[in-house]
């Protein structure tokens, strides 16, 4: 089975307020899927419905082929959940917190101990095993949260804003953990509004707005859809002239050309056209000193998209 999470016309209403509006989401096995969107866009509600912690108003969900509202125990046994604010019993040690979860999952003691050891190793907390959680930093708590999820050896992990509030080093470590999990074949669904981090780990992203998923795809695809261009090429040449810029504008697939300063020209394009740019520059009599390209950043896509949405609404 390649589709592990499927929602059909999933809707959740709180009174008149529509938190999630006819959501159709498909997450494939083994991918890292990012839910993006401003606060209140319905990301957390969607996650809670997938876990069976909130009942949908209408529509259907299948997680690994099970319905979370009717078979919540099976779903929760195979899905790990890291809430946006992960809390532990502060007065208990890391081990005591984990053994409680293991017992709730019905694991026998020896098996639980084995899994706890290996989980703590994976998140690099072995030496903190018998320390009270009250002494943990936010990053350590977050990693302990992952250890807790790993105890039940899940097929899917859902994380709500996993890197929020972490320092850069903590966030980097955490993203590394996500990559390790992905390499083990675990499907990961994460929500975030820290875009460059999403871009760093996600295979596909879905853009949420007012309970609807407006766009889905890889970051490059979204870039093409929203900005009409996904690549930005920087040409370094000592003698920028209007003629060269005109010539570059004639290149097919070049969307926007402008001189950043006297020595750099920026070309935005829908595909990788470095070769054509170089050829055109030289044909137009320019000297090529350097040529570099960067992919579109998710930040820009996001900002541009929501700017447009707000503009249309106004």
């Amino acid at each position: 089975m390649s589709e592990v999470i499927v929602t059909k016309d999933l809707t959740k209403k709180y009174g008149d307020f529509v938190a999630v509006d006819h959501l159709n989401l498909i997450v494939h096995k083994g991918e890292v899927f990012g839910l993006l969107g401003p606060n209140g866009a319905g990301k957390t509600t969607t996650i809670l419905m997938i876990l069976g912690l909130t009942e949908p108003t209408s529509g259907s969900i299948r997680v690994l082929g099970f319905d979370p509202t009717r078979q919540p125990l099976t779903v929760k046994a195979h899905v790990g959940y890291l809430p946006d604010q992960v809390g532990f019993y502060d007065e208990l040690t890391a081990y005591e917190n984990l053994i409680y979860i293991a017992k709730l999952n019905g694991l026998p003691r020896e098996e639980a101990d084995r899994r706890i050891e290996s989980a703590l190793q994976k998140v690099n907390l072995v030496e903190m095993r018998d320390k009270a959680v009250s002494t943990f930093s936010r990053g350590m708590r977050q990693r302990l949260g992952v250890a807790e999820i790993l105890i039940k050896q899940p097929q899917i992990i859902i994380m709500d804003e996993p890197t929020q509030g972490l320092d850069p080093e903590g966030a980097r470590e955490f993203l590394e953990i996500i990559r390790t999990l992905r390499a083990e074949g675990i499907t990961i669904l994460l929500s975030s509004h820290l875009l460059h981090q999403v871009q760093a780990v996600c295979d596909r992203v879905g853009l949420f707005h007012r309970g609807k998923m407006m766009l889905v795809g890889t970051v490059d695809e979204l870039g093409r859809k929203v900005l009409g261009k996904a690549f930005r090429i920087y040409v370094e040449t000592p003698n920028t002239t209007p003629e060269i810029i005109e010539a570059l504008k004639q290149v097919p697939e070049a969307v926007n050309v402008r001189a950043l300063n006297t020595t750099t020209i920026e070309v935005e394009a829908t595909s990788d056209i470095r070769h054509e740019v170089a050829k055109t520059l030289i044909t137009a009599g320019g000297q090529l000193r350097g040529l570099s390209m960067e992919a579109q950043s998710l930040d820009e896509i996001y900002a541009q998209y929501f700017q447009e949405v707000e503009h249309v609404r106004a």
């Binding site: 876990l51 125990l73 899905v79 809430p83 502060d90 709730l104 019905g106």
Partner: peptide, 14 residues
């Protein structure tokens, strides 16, 4: 308040 409720209820229990 300790933010443990959602984590506990995400375990396979009612």
């Amino acid at each position: 308040n300790r933010k443990t409720l959602s984590r506990i209820l995400a375990q396979p229990i009612y």
